[in-house]
Design a protein around this nucleic acid. Structure first.
Lengths: 220, 220
DNA sequence: GTAGTATACGGAGGCTCCCTCCGTTTTACA
DNA sequence: TGTAAAACGGAGGGAGCCTCCGTATACTAC
């Protein structure tokens, strides 16, 4: 019996905003170490894939192995935390982009950012796929946040009249995600091109554009 | 660096019919042990899935770990051998069935056998999927043999006029395989029912049957 | 500022698994 | 029956997993 089968705590990561712990707030060092671990784990999963050594992760985070296991009792718990964090970063960037450039450009940037993000984290896919298929309600929750970000970008574009209004965030995410998943390993330029095409399609048929949604010529 | 990454010999299993070894025939104990290992591995993979302990496999085969690694230098080599063996068994059974019963019945039996075979080897799927996707020409070869068996059954049925003649072995295999793969875990009755349905479809529209291929009512 | 304590840290240790290496045994052939 | 090639087996070194518990640290109350 492999030990990995035993501990199946459901996502027992320490949650800084846990309403269950009544008074005391979590210690500063605990918070800091948690972040260090997530960063190190993201690197490790990206580089080595599904079965990166957790002892390496702890070492690279400058933290004892015991600390890792206290924060993330399960390998899955760690993977989940990393995934959540990645999505958080992407969502934040959406807001930043909207503040610094016109909405259509922000949308385009964000889509490309998404592709590059997935490309650098290739190894994560092998970790994520099994987890997503076993644990649907975990993915739903997080996917929801990403969808919200995509929706925000789309709506801003639609309001400015530079992006068509008949596409929702969920569809966009599925499309971009699908392209990233299906494109063969290591060929992220292909994904970037395809996503660029997708974006052109989004611009097409916007209020400002004369042509309807269906017509050819979408190369950059 | 995990050791598993290092040895990537391509399917270095000892082949009893290797034309390269000029004179001496392989030793009897080697042949025997090879079979024992494959049997034990099949059980282990079925029960424990992708990462069953190879030391357990050797132990259950009543053989030293060194012997296992000599026969199958790679985990993948062992998986491949098990897979091949499973297919061999299925192909042999096709011949036996054809000799002992009318062709349409033989076909039906074989299809159900296929389902039950996959059901008991559930754990194998997780081992097989990655291997099949990385190593296409390995799967082609073996799939070819299974296709041949299916074709043989279909043609015998068509010749007897009890099975329609416009379906080929490849299609049949894809259909049955697809049903086995897609049906949710542990519910092999569902697969059996669906495959039964498929078989009724095959009988329908045979030379002896009045009705054309498209018409309802196919429940067992 | 200090004392007290809940909280968190770290890594040794026990376990399992992986794979290699080499002395020993068995088998096929002459 | 002798002999060399072929095969066996398992010890051993390395690595990863996870737990446990003595030690250190950051909060809180005074």
């Amino acid at each position: 019996m492999v030990a990995r089968d035993v501990a199946v705590a459901e996502s027992g990561a320490i949650d800084p905003a846990d309403p269950a712990s009544p008074d005391r707030r979590p210690r500063a060092d605990a918070l800091r170490n948690r972040d260090l671990l997530i960063t190190a784990a993201a690197d490790a999963f990206a580089a080595r894939g599904a079965d990166a050594s957790l002892e390496d992760v702890a070492r690279n985070a400058g933290v004892g192995i015991g600390t890792l296991y206290r924060h993330f009792p399960t390998r899955d718990a760690l993977v989940e935390a990393v995934y959540r964090h990645e999505i958080d970063v992407l969502c934040e960037r959406a807001d930043q982009l909207l503040e610094t450039m016109p909405p259509d450009q922000a949308l385009s940037e964000w889509m490309q950012l998404f592709v590059r993000h997935v490309a650098t984290k290739r190894g994560m896919l092998s970790v994520l796929k099994p987890l997503l298929s076993t644990n649907p309600n975990f993915s739903d929750q997080t996917r929801g946040r990403a969808t919200a970000a995509a929706t925000k970008l789309l709506e801003a574009g639609a309001a400015a009249g530079t992006v068509r209004a008949d596409v929702n965030g969920g569809d966009l995410l599925r499309a971009v995600g699908g392209i990233c998943m299906s494109t063969d390993q290591e060929r992220s330029e292909a994904s970037e091109r395809l996503v660029g095409l997708l974006f052109d399609g989004l611009r097409h048929g916007a209020a400002g554009s004369p042509a309807g949604p269906r017509s050819g010529d979408a190369s950059a």
